[in-house]
Design a protein around this nucleic acid. Structure first.
Length: 558
DNA sequence: GACGGCTCCAAA
DNA sequence: AACTTTTGGAGCCGTC
């Protein structure tokens, strides 16, 4: 493997260092900043792994210069994993005191787009000594209990960072005119003066009339509850799902107002102005932004909460298609594979796992199967979900034992670890103090109860961590494989002229591609899902079927 | 006027 | 229909 590290030199230079497998420098080269993209493009033919402190600092300027890289080591992301992983717990990297690569020193992902206008690459390194850090990471991996697993995780995490930057660069095709039409249809025409749109104002007046409260501010939960009480409506909260249970003529207008108000404030004209430019919405993903390893999103776009309601504005360019691929029932399949529960794996070989669980006789209906599985993975304590747990435990003892063990570990304050080696954080100091206080002599019943509640809460977190985190690893492997496969099949044309990823949402990917390539892309997506399953679980007989839709607009997919 | 906590809702 | 997990953002409201 060829490694080439990039580091910001003094002033306006970049130091490029060739490294061997253990991080020993075999050759140094100092470049002017302006030369970097051309040199990277040329060296890319050697298929190196580019080693840099932070993909979100280095890669956007390269993409702007139309230079892609195949693979990298994102030292910041890898550090976070290695620091916490049970697989590298005894390494120097994990046992050293917190340094500049740990939390405190993390600066926000650079506002690369703004920086781009002035500079081609980062002027200052985020941290000292990327080469020292790289060597320390190599030692941690080599001395790991399972170098293959952790190595795969680090490669997938780094590939994910490349994907996130490429999606941001390419953007999701977005028809501003259709979005405006949709808003006008639901809310009325865009007001020019910051007034409430006409249909929203009308909904507000219907609420006020129905409750006999002409001055009511419906956006204030306190005021709304008071108005409900006046009108003889027994509501304890203003949540939509609570209100839906109440039969009263004022409820429908309230729900209507809330729906419209949400559309306006979350994805209205202001969102459109801020987040869509030149026909593209550019999601700002934060790889590794969630403790479990899922991505987070930031910047106001809300990429990972994109409502179904507005997806009709996501339209492929003329002559192009969107290939929408969704890993159906991902988390229960992950649980089956993780636990090696052969009975559950058998159900997981079916296209509809919940139906297969019913067919096996474990529960009576598909709804029950779904709610019971969710309960197992989240740690349900009440309701139908909790009542179904004994049935599920009888049918799938090994799978349930895995999540129960994860929950018990969390309750004891221990860490749990995903399939590829991402470990959960330890509970905070307050949690530990509450636990030990509860066992002390003078502990009150209230303290003991509180400690127990907190312990169960942390147990639900660790229970879910192993499943959600392993599912996130599957998604990373899927995405990385898909990206490589698309690259391999589409020659040397630039990213946005060939099939490319434009959106990701936990277990769903959207690829924008010329219409004639759509069938090939679908095949590649399915093959990549199968590859991801093998990467994580080897020969374990669980399948990860995709539902794939080839569509002109996103709302047509499911 | 800034800030933090709270409520509510969007996604998986 | 939710319960039970992880998130980000808008708006409200009390405090400084």
């Amino acid at each position: 493997m060829v490694y080439i590290a990039l580091n910001s030199g003094s002033d306006r230079s970049v130091v490029l260092s060739r490294l061997d497998d253990s991080g020993v420098v075999t050759e140094d080269q100092v470049l002017a900043r302006a030369e970097l993209s051309a040199v990277v493009a040329q060296l890319e033919s050697e298929r190196p792994r580019w080693v840099w402190d932070d993909t979100s600092r280095w890669y956007p300027p390269l993409l702007k210069a139309e230079v892609r890289v195949e693979r990298c080591v994102d030292l910041r992301l890898c550090h976070a994993i290695l620091r916490a992983s049970a697989l590298t717990a005894s390494s120097e990297l994990a046992t050293a005191a917190a340094g500049p690569w740990d939390h405190g020193a993390i600066e926000p992902a650079v506002a690369a787009d703004n920086a781009l206008f002035e500079v081609d690459v980062p002027i200052q390194s985020a941290r000292e000594d990327p080469l020292d850090e790289f060597r320390m990471q190599r030692r941690a991996i080599e001395s790991s209990i399972d170098p293959g697993r952790i190595g795969l995780l680090l490669a997938a995490e780094s590939a994910g960072a490349l994907v996130a930057a490429e999606i941001h660069y390419a953007g999701l095709p977005w028809r501003e005119d259709l979005h405006d039409e949709l808003l006008t249809r639901h809310l009325g025409p865009r007001p020019s003066n910051g007034e409430r749109p006409r249909l929203l104002a009308a909904a507000l007046e219907r609420v006020r009339a129905a409750l006999g409260a002409p001055e009511l501010n419906v956006d204030s939960p306190t005021e709304l509850l008071r108005a409900f009480a006046h009108a003889g409506i027994a509501a304890t909260s203003t949540r939509s799902w609570e209100l839906k249970k109440i039969d009263h003529p004022a409820i429908a207008p309230v729900l209507e107002y809330k729906k419209l108000s949400r559309l306006l404030s979350a994805n209205g004209w202001h969102w459109l102005d801020t987040n869509v430019h030149d026909g593209r919405f550019r999601p700002e993903y934060v790889p590794g932004g969630v403790v479990t390893g899922r991505w987070a999103s930031t910047g106001g776009g809300g990429a990972l909460q994109l409502p179904k309601q507005i997806r009709e504005a996501v339209v492929a360019d003329p002559g192009w298609k969107l290939v929408v691929a969704d890993a159906s029932q991902l988390e229960p399949r992950i649980l089956a594979a993780l636990s090696g529960d052969l009975a559950m794996a058998e159900a997981g070989r079916s296209g509809d796992m919940y139906a297969a669980i019913v067919a096996s006789g474990a529960v009576a209906s598909r709804d029950q199967a779904k709610v019971a599985m969710l309960g197992a993975m989240y740690g349900a304590t009440t309701g139908e979900s909790a009542r179904l747990m004994p049935k599920l435990t009888r049918a799938y003892p090994r799978a349930i034992a895995l999540v129960e063990a994860a929950a018990r570990a969390g309750e004891r304050g221990e860490i749990v670890t995903t399939r590829l080696g991402r470990s959960s954080p330890r509970p905070g100091e307050q949690w530990r103090a509450a636990q030990s206080d509860a066992y002390g002599e003078g502990a009150s019943d209230a303290e003991r109860t509180r400690a127990r509640t907190q312990a169960r809460g942390w147990g639900r977190f660790t229970r879910n961590f192993v499943v959600q985190g392993s599912a996130a690893e599957w998604a990373l492997c899927w995405m990385a494989t898909l990206r490589q496969s698309l690259r391999a099949s589409s020659g040397s044309a630039w990213l946005t002229r060939v099939p490319h990823l434009v959106f990701f949402m936990h277990d769903e990917l959207v690829i924008h591609c010329p219409a004639e390539a759509a069938q090939d892309v679908e095949r590649i997506a399915r093959e990549s899902a199968a590859t991801a399953g093998r990467l994580l679980f080897g020969a374990m007989p669980v399948e990860f079927p995709l539902s794939v839709a080839i569509v002109d607009d996103y709302s047509q997919a499911k």
